[in-house]
C-alpha cells in the first residue's frame, strides 16, 4: 500500500504567542512541533503499512525549520519525505492544498492521511480541499478506519453521533483524536530518520487569496467575583448564574 501523510509544523500546544510591534506573530521563542492531529495521521499510516506492507511518504510545505517536524514523522517510522520549499507557510489553505495536490498527483497514492486540522490556524479545510483538487473522496474527523481491498469504512464524529461512511480508494482521510494512540519514536527510529534524505523541491505557489490583516491578543478576562464562602451564599450565586451569567 502506497500511503502519503501530509503534515504541518505548528507551535507547541503550550506556546504563549507573542506579537511583534507590527502585529505579526513573533516566532523567535516558539518551539515548533509536528501538529498533534498529524501524529494520529502518521500512526494510522504506519499501522496500515505494518498490515499490508508498502511505503509511507511524508509531505510538508514550509521553510527549513519544517524539517524537524518531518524528522519526527520519519523517527516514528515513515519511509520517505518530501518538503515543498516555501519561505513561509501560506495563510490561505488553498495555496498549500494546491502545492500538496501537485506533489500528491506524482505519487499514485492509495491513501492520503492528514490531521483533521492544524492547531495553529485551525482552518480545518485541508482534507476537503485535497479531496476536491485530486477528485477523490475525502472524509474528515475520522475516529476509526477499516481498509479492505480497494474499499474503506470510516467512522467520523458528528454532532451527537458517529457517522459511518464507505468509499473506494484512493481517498483522503482527516484524522481525529481517538483514531489511535501515536507511538513514541524509538531510538533506532530516530537514528534511522537522521539518515533519510528529505527530498526538497521547489514549487510555484499560487497567490494568497486570504490576507491576515493583523493579530491581536484575546481580550483580558474580567476578574471573578466571590459571592461568599458559606452555604448562605448559594441563593445569591444561583441568582447571578441565572440572571447575569445566564448559564442556568
Amino acid at each position: 500500500m502506497n500511503i502519503a501523510v501530509c503534515i504541518k509544523q505548528t507551535p507547541d500546544t503550550e506556546t504563549r504567542i507573542k506579537l511583534t510591534e507590527a502585529k505579526t506573530v513573533d516566532e523567535s521563542d516558539i518551539n515548533f512541533i509536528l501538529n498533534p492531529y498529524d501524529e494520529f495521521a502518521v500512526e494510522e499510516a504506519l499501522k496500515l503499512r505494518e498490515k499490508f506492507d508498502g511505503e509511507v511518504t511524508v509531505i510538508s510545505l514550509g521553510p527549513d525549520r519544517v524539517n524537524s517536524a518531518i524528522r519526527s514523522a520519519l523517527a516514528m517510522g515513515a519511509d520517505k519525505a518530501v518538503r515543498i520549499k516555501a519561505e513561509n507557510i501560506p495563510t490561505d489553505p488553498n495555496v498549500t492544498a494546491g502545492a500538496l495536490a501537485t506533489e500528491l498527483q506524482k505519487g499514485n497514492y492509495d491513501l492520503i492521511f492528514l490531521g483533521k486540522q492544524a492547531i495553529d490556524d485551525d482552518h480545518a479545510q485541508m482534507p476537503a480541499l485535497l479531496g476536491a483538487k485530486l477528485g477523490i473522496p475525502a472524509i474528515s474527523v475520522v475516529v476509526k478506519l477499516e481498509v479492505e481491498g480497494d474499499k474503506l469504512t470510516a467512522e467520523r464524529e458528528i454532532d451527537g453521533a458517529h457517522e459511518i461512511i464507505e468509499c473506494s480508494l484512493p481517498a483522503v482521510i482527516g484524522a481525529q483524536r481517538g483514531l489511535n494512540e501515536p507511538r513514541y519514536a524509538s531510538l533506532k527510529g530516530i537514528m534511522k530518520a537522521k539518515k533519510i534524505q528529505i527530498n526538497e523541491i521547489d514549487a510555484e505557489l499560487s497567490a494568497d487569496q486570504l490576507q491576515v490583516v493583523e493579530f491581536n491578543y484575546p481580550p483580558e478576562k474580567s476578574p471573578g467575583k466571590i459571592v461568599g464562602d458559606s452555604a448562605d451564599a448559594v441563593p445569591e450565586l444561583l441568582r447571578l448564574l441565572h440572571e447575569e451569567a445566564k448559564v442556568i
Binding site: 524528522r71 513514541y184 519514536a185 530516530i190
Partner: peptide
C-alpha cells in the same frame, strides 16, 4: 546533536 535532542525529548514526553 539533533538526534540526541530528539531522543531526550521523546523520553521526556513519554
Amino acid at each position: 546533536s539533533e538526534e540526541e535532542r530528539m531522543v531526550r525529548d521523546t523520553v521526556r514526553q513519554f
